[in-house]
Write a protein that binds this DNA or RNA. Structure first.
Length: 411
DNA sequence: TCCGAGTCAATAGA
DNA sequence: TCTATTGACTCGGA
């Protein structure tokens, strides 16, 4: 189902913040079914009869829009929630695509990302919290799994039907029935498909060069970008996008580092964090700026351009402080956030025990924070490596912090 | 104008 | 077939 009317991605324009209620296909939307929004889901107004394409009762039908529900939501333990969701999906053999499209109104890739690398609640914008509220409500829905299973069956049925008819239809050409697309209503005209820009895939050398450039200057000047682009034979927009994405993803990795360092709770606390799990690219593509041993050294050796380092310093510094185990300069929230339990200005609000009543997830979380599961050796190694790098950064940050003038900061 | 946040969707890999 | 990765994009804020 074309969630966003087809735009997006590398071709037609990304998702943007269009996460309005355009997720009309969210059959069995927990937000809809939990119309009160204030009580655990113990009933199922939709009667568990959700079907693909069934129009949703609008979240507002209870007087609460999704945004309002998000705004009213207490602190949620995003890690516990994603962990639980993953469990449920795995146990019931339900795919991320189905779950994302029907429950969250997101695409598979986004779901994968969210589940693997959930940000702490307090670091999320209102919009970013929305999927977690949806997940939370879904988890509370006693019929959630059944509904999704039903959807799965129906989709399969529809697929078989179409396949059969396409086979019997001499006009249909082989391959016109791509996998999930048939369900997504992606009926882009042929002409439109021809307009699609091919996806740029950066080669290892290009990535390496960009990473080196990033290590020197996380915020390169337009001139640098131009130079990089011409040297690598890329479009400047590609280089700009790469830096945007890389910064953003490094930041996210650091959130996870923060969580893991603080309590062992987190997406990968059992069996290894997805973010730490050997990235298949094996070239630091986990977007962890602290991952490669060279990172810090390179910065030191080459000297980061100070003209534009604010973001990197701010972001990494902050995370690193908490990584250090709650440095005394860090706001209390960092300690709390590490277990996903708190937010800015709040003092470790209990997670999910408020109006949404996430009891199980919360208990999981608190249990994990006091009982860190053993990691496998590989993770330990990775972790040690990262910890060493982070310590290095911490050290320099501490030095830097003693100098008020940023221009005196040394990296 | 730049940046971060959030997302899409193509693609690679298991 | 499913999941993970990642380049590109939109939107809103500074």
């Amino acid at each position: 189902m074309g969630l966003k009317g087809g735009g997006g991605g590398g071709v037609g324009g990304g998702g943007g913040s269009g996460s309005d209620e355009s997720v009309n296909g969210l059959a069995g939307d927990p937000l809809a079914s939990q119309s009160s929004g204030l009580k655990p889901l113990s009933e199922d107004p939709s009667g568990g009869e959700s079907q693909p394409g069934t129009p949703l009762p609008l979240p507002g039908h209870s007087g609460l829009s999704i945004q309002e529900m998000v705004a009213m939501s207490p602190e949620l333990d995003t890690y516990a929630i994603t962990k639980k969701v993953k469990e449920v999906l795995t146990d019931n053999n339900l795919g991320q695509r189905l779950f994302g499209e029907t429950i969250l109104g997101l695409t598979q890739g986004s779901v994968s990302d969210l589940l693997a690398r959930p940000k702490p609640w307090h670091k999320l914008s209102l919009k970013g919290r929305e999927p977690f509220v949806r997940m939370q409500l879904w988890l509370q829905d006693p019929h959630s799994v059944e509904k999704l299973m039903d959807m799965k069956r129906l989709e399969k049925k529809a697929y078989m039907k179409r396949r059969l008819s396409s086979l019997s239809d001499s006009h249909s050409v082989d391959g016109v029935l791509p996998g999930p697309d048939y369900m997504q209503g992606s009926q882009s005209p042929v002409g439109q498909q021809q307009l699609k820009k091919p996806r740029v895939v950066l080669g290892p050398e290009e990535k390496e060069a960009l990473k080196k450039a990033y290590q020197q200057k996380p915020y390169p000047s337009p001139k640098t970008i131009e130079e990089l682009a011409s040297q690598l034979n890329l479009k400047t927009s590609t280089v700009i996008n790469w830096f945007h994405n890389y910064r953003s993803r490094i930041r996210r990795e650091l959130f996870i580092e923060e969580i893991q360092a603080a309590g062992g709770m987190g997406p990968g606390s059992e069996g290894g964090s997805p973010s730490l799990r050997g990235s298949k690219s094996g070239e630091g593509d986990s977007c962890d700026g602290t991952e490669s041993e060279g990172t810090v050294e390179t910065r030191q050796g080459l000297g980061v351009g100070l003209e534009d380092h604010r973001g990197a310093c701010k972001d990494q510094g902050m995370e690193v402080e908490s990584e250090a185990g709650g440095s005394n300069d860090s706001p209390a929230e960092l300690d709390c956030s590490a277990s996903g339990l708190a937010g800015p200005g709040s003092s470790c609000v209990q997670s999910g025990l408020g109006i949404f009543g996430l009891t199980e997830a919360s208990s999981t979380s608190s249990a994990s924070s006091t009982n860190v599961p053993a990691r496998n050796p590989r993770d330990n190694n990775l972790r040690k490596k990262k910890a060493a790098n982070l310590n290095n950064i911490i050290h320099r940050l501490e030095k830097a912090a003693s100098k008020e003038d940023p221009s005196e900061w040394e990296f």
